[in-house]
Write a protein that binds this DNA or RNA. Structure first.
Length: 112
DNA sequence: CGTGTGACTAGGA
DNA sequence: ATCCTAGCCACAC
């Protein structure tokens, strides 16, 4: 019998990875995509995040582009929500960009 | 079933 | 250093 997944497995995997992001840490789309075996499908990660919008367990606000810029802040129901959430976790943001992003970056394939 | 688009990334000028 | 182009996969129409 075939189970009809309400959502693609790819999306579910993305959610799973994002949920593994520890507190006070952030991740990039490319890192997640690479962890899923699709380093070139970073776009799809963002697209999955769009669906993750419905998943309170998925801290999409911890996922930013490789520049540490809050590219998807506009999709949180408010351009201020994402920044607010990140600052609430101890991140410093300026000009829509995470300060010391490199230091707060967390690699799913290399969770030191 | 074909086309278009997207919360990206890497490489070239 | 900045700016532009191409590639990529999945989903919606």
């Amino acid at each position: 019998m075939k189970n009809k997944a309400t959502e693609s497995d790819f999306f579910l995997r993305v959610y799973d990875v994002v949920r593994q992001i520890p507190d006070r840490r952030v991740c990039s789309y490319g890192a997640i995509a690479a962890h899923l075996g699709m380093p070139r499908s970073a776009r799809m990660v963002g697209w999955a995040m769009n669906a993750a919008h419905s998943k309170p367990d998925v801290p999409a606000h911890r996922v930013v582009n490789r520049n540490g810029m809050l590219t998807g802040k506009h999709h949180f129901g408010g351009p201020r929500v994402m920044q607010q959430l990140l600052e609430n976790e101890g991140h410093q943001i300026e000009n829509d960009q995470i300060l010391n992003f490199k230091n707060s970056f967390w690699d799913p394939s290399n969770p030191v």
